[in-house]
Design a protein around this nucleic acid. Sequence first.
DNA 1: GCCAACGTTGGC
DNA 2: GCCAACGTTGGC
Length: 134
Amino acid sequence: MAYWLVKSDPDAYSWNDFEKDKETIWDGVRNYQARYNLKSMNKGDKVLYYHSQSDRAVVGVAKVSQEYFQDPTTKDDSWVAVKLKLLYKLNSPVTLSQIKSEPILSEISLIKQSRLSVMLLTAEEYLKILAMGV
DNA sequence: GCCAACGTTGGC
DNA sequence: GCCAACGTTGGC
């Protein structure tokens, strides 16, 4: 089982939108590294859901419910999407500044590669963020 | 709203 | 193949 973090601009698609849908197609990724990560996802992997831009916090947890397939938003078959199923919302969002202040999270891609939208987490990073959101 | 960082494009 | 120009993202 792997652990991931995906970013969404809440103005485009927020956790609230996700709660209404329960399951969503994670499409629109147009970055090679992010695509590689999408292709590496296995069904059942856990995914932290991060709000970028105005919010800048991890707000909830999802899981991969369908492995990668052709991105339906483009005819270009080199891009892929996955399906994510909502699991639960964190009791308290874990903000970017909290993440930055934790030494064991200092190597997290969220900080190191601020523009990457789909990234792999270690189990330690994943569990630490969950613990901070209780 | 600004700007730094980054990825992509296109001219050479 | 290099690199300047450009567009986009995301933090502040």
